[in-house]
C-alpha cells in the first residue's frame, strides 16, 4: 500500500481483570473509507473504539493515526489528536444542562474558542444539515425524541468538521424508518466532509448501507475483514451465522441451558 492508512491498529490487547476483551486486533483503515466493525454484544467492539479514541488504554499494541503513535501520549498532544475526531455516542450523550444549539456548538466554543455568535450560526447550519430547524435550537435535549436526539448528536459530531468520525451503534433504539434516516444522514455527512468513518454496529442493514469495508469481531479477534460487497460470499462460518442471525453455529452465546 503506497498511501498512508488513516488509522492503524497493531496487535491491540485489552483485558478487564481476568477477562480478555481484545486479543490482538490488527487492522488498517484507509483515508476516506467507511469501515464498519460488526459483532455480537460483548465481542469488544466498543472497547476497540474507546481505545482508538484514547478513552481507554490498551495493555499492549500500538495505534497510529496519520502514522503517529497515539497510545500513551501526554494529555496536551492527546487533545491535538482529539481535534481530528468526532464521535456519535450510542445514547447520544448530549449535555442535558445545555440547550440544543450549545450542544452542537460545544466543540467549536470550547475546543476551538470560536465566539458565541459565530458558533451559534454554525450550529444552526449543522442542525439544518441533519434536517432540524431553528425551532429546536433553544430546546433542551430532554424535550426531544430519541431520533431527534440522535440527529443533534450527529450534528455535534460533525460540527467541528473532523477528519475521522466514529459511530457507536448509530441505529440502536430507533424505529426502522428513523434508523434508515440516520443511515442516510451518516452516508451524506461522511461524504460531504470527506472524512474517514469507523462505525460499530450489530445492525446488518445499517452496516451494509454505510460501509465500504467490514470487519467481524468475535472474542476479541477479527475473524474476517473484507469489502462490503463480499460479505455474502465471505465463506466464513462466523460471518455467515451473524448476517443470517442464526442461533446455532460456531458463535456460541453464553447462555446456560
Amino acid at each position: 500500500m503506497t498511501r498512508q492508512p488513516k488509522i492503524q491498529l497493531i496487535d491491540i490487547h485489552k483485558s478487564f481483570g481476568h477477562k480478555k476483551v481484545l486479543d490482538g486486533v490488527t487492522v488498517d483503515i484507509g483515508t476516506g473509507e467507511s469501515f464498519v466493525i460488526i459483532g455480537g454484544s460483548g465481542s469488544g467492539k466498543s472497547v476497540t473504539l474507546k481505545c482508538i479514541l484514547g478513552l481507554m488504554r490498551p495493555e499492549r499494541g500500538s495505534i497510529l493515526v496519520d502514522g503517529r503513535e497515539v497510545v500513551g501520549v501526554p494529555a496536551r498532544q492527546r487533545e491535538e489528536v482529539m481535534k481530528k475526531f468526532g464521535m456519535l455516542f450510542q445514547g447520544s450523550a448530549l449535555f442535558d444542562s445545555l440547550p440544543v444549539w450549545e450542544n452542537v456548538a460545544f466543540g467549536l466554543m470550547q475546543g476551538r474558542h470560536m465566539d458565541r455568535r459565530t458558533a451559534r450560526r454554525k450550529a444552526l447550519e449543522k442542525l439544518a444539515q441533519v434536517g432540524l430547524g431553528k425551532d429546536v435550537a433553544e430546546l433542551s435535549p430532554s424535550e426531544l425524541s430519541g431520533g431527534m436526539q440522535k440527529r443533534v448528536a450527529l450534528a455535534r459530531a460533525i460540527a467541528a468538521e473532523p477528519e475521522i468520525l466514529f459511530f457507536d451503534e448509530p441505529t440502536t433504539g430507533l424505529d426502522p424508518i428513523m434508523a434508515d434516516v440516520i443511515n442516510d444522514l451518516i452516508v451524506k455527512c461522511v461524504r460531504e466532509l470527506g472524512a474517514t468513518a469507523v462505525s460499530i454496529t450489530h445492525d446488518m442493514h445499517s452496516a451494509r448501507k454505510i460501509s465500504d469495508r467490514m470487519a467481524m469481531l468475535y472474542h476479541g479477534k477479527l475473524v474476517w475483514v473484507g469489502p462490503t460487497a463480499d460479505v455474502d460470499q465471505a465463506d466464513n462460518p462466523y460471518v455467515d451465522q451473524f448476517i443470517h442471525g442464526r442461533a446455532d453455529g460456531p458463535i456460541k452465546m453464553e447462555i446456560r441451558h
Binding site: A75, E79, F95, G107, F166
Partner: peptide
C-alpha cells in the same frame, strides 16, 4: 449521571478536559 450516560466521554471527544470543565 454524566459518567454513565457517556457525557464525560463526549466532553473528551470535544477536546474539553472534564477536569477543567
Amino acid at each position: 449521571t454524566m459518567r454513565v450516560t457517556e457525557q464525560i466521554d463526549a466532553l473528551t471527544t470535544l477536546s474539553t478536559n472534564p477536569f477543567k470543565y
